[in-house]
Design a protein around this nucleic acid. Structure first.
Length: 343
DNA sequence: ATCTATGATTCACC
DNA sequence: GGTGAATCATAGAT
């Protein structure tokens, strides 16, 4: 009995293996035509392939039997040799690809919107600023603001929980595949590098799923944002007190109705609006005043009186007289009024 | 329904 | 970047 025949009998004697059909005349013919060695190897390979069709316990037992088989090292070395030849053609085909620019774009956006960054970072601050600039009374904007924040937080939460799920699934799957490959490396030649490559492939697959998640999150944020920006166009008039403060400043600085940055901040604080709203207001006011001074005459006189009265009060309170708020020299034409407040 | 007032936006200019 | 000018879009008055 030669080695291969012994091996065959050894394998068939392992139990549970399909016995070569000795009684079958076809089988006998095959044995004769193939020649003993090829036929034996063919059987072994067939048995290896058959493992996949079996239950786990059976397969484990079979695997163990095969691993213990004394021909296994020989088969293994043959597989190694084949592998060595084929690997040369595979090598270098799939090398490190550069970071996907689209992923980077999505990442940057998610970071900017405060979805992927630290909990209460720049993104929400920016949103807050935008919300504040949205106009309307301070209460309205804060309602819109909190609404926006709440929705953003919701998106953020979903994004993170999904991301976590994906990451967990990815690492679980990676572990599983690595274990499988390590296990298989006992029967077929698998280099650590190949395992690495396989892991990279898995990661690529999962990162493409992640990209989809990022994309849909971005879309959600964009929709939220556009809704929010639409809401911004829903103009709300400033309250009476705010308009009064702004008008007072405007008419008392008619010669130069350009508040400094500090003055704008002060006015914004007084009126409960943002600095950019103050800028808008002054921009509109200047142009509209200039366009139709006549129309604003009454208003101008009213505030001139107010300013004069205030100035008078101040001077009355102070022991020494102060000069009026702002002399009107140049700049925008002043309304006509007498120093005592009469028109 | 229509008009007016007004806050916001856009664009060109400096 | 701040401003003027034109324009948009809507609230509020009629």
């Amino acid at each position: 009995m030669d080695d291969q025949t012994r091996m065959l009998t050894g394998l068939t004697g392992l139990g549970g293996l399909p016995q070569p059909d000795v009684g079958d005349p076809d089988s006998v013919r095959k044995q004769q035509s193939l020649g003993q060695p090829q036929q034996d190897i063919g059987d072994i390979l067939q048995q290896i392939m058959a493992i996949t069709d079996e239950s786990l316990d059976e397969a484990q037992a079979r695997k163990h039997a095969l691993n213990c088989h004394r021909m296994k090292p020989a088969l293994f070395s043959v597989l190694c040799e084949i592998k060595e030849k084929t690997v040369l053609s595979i090598r270098g085909v799939q090398e490190e690809d550069p970071p996907d620019p689209q992923i980077m774009r999505l990442d940057n956006m998610l970071l900017a919107e405060g979805v992927s960054g630290p909990e209460k970072g720049g993104g929400s601050a920016a949103a807050a600023a935008a919300a504040a600039a949205a106009g309307g009374s301070p209460t309205d904007s804060s309602i819109e603001h909190s609404d926006y924040r709440a929705k953003l937080a919701q998106i953020r939460q979903i994004y993170h929980s999904e991301l976590e799920k994906y990451e967990q699934a990815c690492s679980e799957f990676t572990n599983h595949v690595m274990n499988l490959l390590r296990e298989q490396s006992r029967t077929r030649p698998i280099s650590p590098k190949e395992i690495e490559r396989m892991v990279a492939i898995i990661h690529r697959k999962f990162s493409s799923i992640q990209m989809q998640l990022k994309q849909s999150t971005c879309e959600a944020v964009m929709i939220l944002r556009s809704r929010f920006l639409d809401a911004r166009r829903k103009r709300r008039n400033f309250n009476k007190q705010a308009t009064e403060v702004l008008n007072e400043y405007f008419y008392s600085h008619l010669s130069n109705p350009y508040p400094s940055e500090e003055a704008k901040e002060e006015l914004a604080k007084k009126c409960g609006i943002t600095v950019s709203q103050v800028s808008n207001w002054f921009g509109n006011k200047r142009i509209r005043y200039k366009k139709n001074i006549g129309k604003f005459q009454e208003e101008a006189n009213l505030y001139a009186v107010k300013t004069a009265v205030d100035a008078a009060n101040v001077s009355a309170q102070a022991s020494q007289a102060n000069s009026p708020a702002t002399p009107n020299s140049g700049g925008y034409p002043a309304p006509c009024y007498t120093p005592d407040g009469r028109l």
